[in-house]
């Protein structure tokens, strides 16, 4: 079950990326950007295989709540396919947000809210998420 904390954090990060995206490459989704930034940082921390495992689990959980994610895939190197395309369509079930919330939720479960907040702060130092998870 999605927790309000992970959903809230996911929404804040997506909103921040969406705001930042106004000046970045047009057409790229906020969820994809959030996922990619998390992937780069978490691969350093947990290794590619470690991150891939977390991401695949998050996707499996998210699909149950957002069927639109059925076309999205996590590849062996942990990167994601189909998320950009999904968000360019009308994302009826908010699949991108749910996927990110699920990924953050797994971090909450494994390493706790405090450490997750520190990692998020490291990825988005200017997002105003300091100490918040």
């Amino acid at each position: 079950m999605l927790t309000p904390e992970s959903l809230d954090l996911a929404r804040r990060l997506l909103a921040y990326e969406a705001g930042a995206g106004k000046t970045s490459v047009a057409g790229e989704s906020a969820a994809f950007h959030v996922y990619e930034k998390l992937r780069r940082h978490l691969c350093v921390l947990a290794g590619v295989a470690g991150f891939e495992s977390l991401a695949a689990r998050a996707l499996t959980l998210a699909r149950a709540e957002a069927p639109s994610l059925r076309t999205v895939q996590v590849t062996a190197d942990g990167s994601i396919q189909g998320l950009r395309e999904l968000e360019l369509q009308i994302d009826k079930d908010d699949g991108g947000t749910i996927l990110i919330a699920r990924l953050l939720g797994l971090l909450f479960i494994f390493i706790g809210e405090a450490l997750t907040a520190q990692l998020v702060q490291d990825v988005w130092p200017d997002s105003g998420n300091k100490g918040k998870a």
């Binding site: 691969c43 350093v44 921390l45 947990a46 290794g47 590619v48 295989a49 470690g50 706790g112 405090a114 450490l115 907040a117 520190q118 990692l119 490291d122």
Partner: peptide, 14 residues
């Protein structure tokens, strides 16, 4: 936890 990752950084080399 406040020391991670600014003061203590974990890097996986697997």
């Amino acid at each position: 936890p406040a020391k991670v990752p600014n003061s203590v950084r974990f890097i996986n080399l697997s």
